[in-house]
Design a protein around this nucleic acid. Sequence first.
DNA 1: CCCCTATATTGAACACTGTTCACTGGAGGC
DNA 2: GCCTCCAGTGAACAGTGTTCAATATAGGGG
Lengths: 198, 198
Amino acid sequence: MATKTKARREDLRLKLIDLAEAQITEQGLASLRARDLAKAGECSVGAIYNVFTDLNGLVLQVNGRTFQRLGKQVASAITDMETAPACERLIALSHAYLDFAQNNYRLWNALFGIKMTSDSNIPAWYQTTLDLLFAHISKPVSEIFPEFNAADTQLMTRGLFSSVHGVVLLGLQQRASSAEISRMLTLILSNISQNKVF
Amino acid sequence: MATKTKARREDLRLKLIDLAEAQITEQGLASLRARDLAKAGECSVGAIYNVFTDLNGLVLQVNGRTFQRLGKQVASAITDMETAPACERLIALSHAYLDFAQNNYRLWNALFGIKMTSDSNIPAWYQTTLDLLFAHISKPVSEIFPEFNAADTQLMTRGLFSSVHGVVLLGLQQRASSAEISRMLTLILSNISQNKVF
DNA sequence: CCCCTATATTGAACACTGTTCACTGGAGGC
DNA sequence: GCCTCCAGTGAACAGTGTTCAATATAGGGG
């Protein structure tokens, strides 16, 4: 029956995602090669294209995993912090983001290294996970700025996320030390909250 | 004589930089092709490699031009603003950065799209221009935070630059409107300066 | 249990990259 | 005008991702 074929395909699918994830982790996105993948997965090059539309599709699956791990890890940084000041929660979130990016540098970089041609196919999980992240930021933001209207709250939330992303991105790219990047995040976020932490 | 050869090479060099710049402006960095360049420049593919070490070297020259224009344009945003509050100068700088990125989107993107293999060859002008940008930011920062020591001033400067970069990068990538990105920058910078502008 | 057909898998071939280097043509000294 | 020598050439090379005619296999019907 067709189940056997389907099961084999699903096995291959998972195996290829695992292999691609390992390869990106060890050598970076740019090192991913269809022929190497086929050899490591003990299948033909063509088989990859039976299971994914193209290599980008495979990377998208890896990114899905990465992004979900990122979401969970950042979220877990503020569990048991409900009572902490909003400013401290923001800082904890940003440091969790930094930690993840540092400990998963190549996978994290692959999130943004994908070719975004034919923009329509940005997967749903991307926006979903991002929205979840934004929700975590949005809460402290509305506590710090209760006078903001909805639009400004959303813009400040997106802006702060982008800020933290920028600091981490450029910081890691220029090989700044963990302490320096950490300090930059703290300086910015604590001053935005008008609640200086020196 | 050798002067003639040298002059011809120099002409070709400039012509190729112009052509590459035009191509990136119109179709983006990913569309740059050695053969197309040779055809447009009325030379052989090999001639390109007589004048540049490789295509990356050519792109580096284009990026040099772009980065210098960026530096000038951002700097000019705060000439005649010496008397303005530091916060407003920061916002003006960030908006100038946004304007440049918007009006030169593909060239600006090419600044970060270059392959950074063999990291040693990051050109001197890169750090020089960046230092100049940092100097412009550093001045308002030390006015707003006179109590900061030198290390923190530098970290806040780099942090704010990275923040603005992040907001512009993600903003333009997600096709946010100019007004939204502008507002995000204003919200963040005016609150950091504890000098709200609503 | 054994065909037989529809479907899945294969990997050589294709289209396209950047880069090289043995050749060639012409510039410039004698 | 001849003869070096060297700059310019572009066909060839080494790698990519992707395809698709050929092959192998699955699994239902006799």
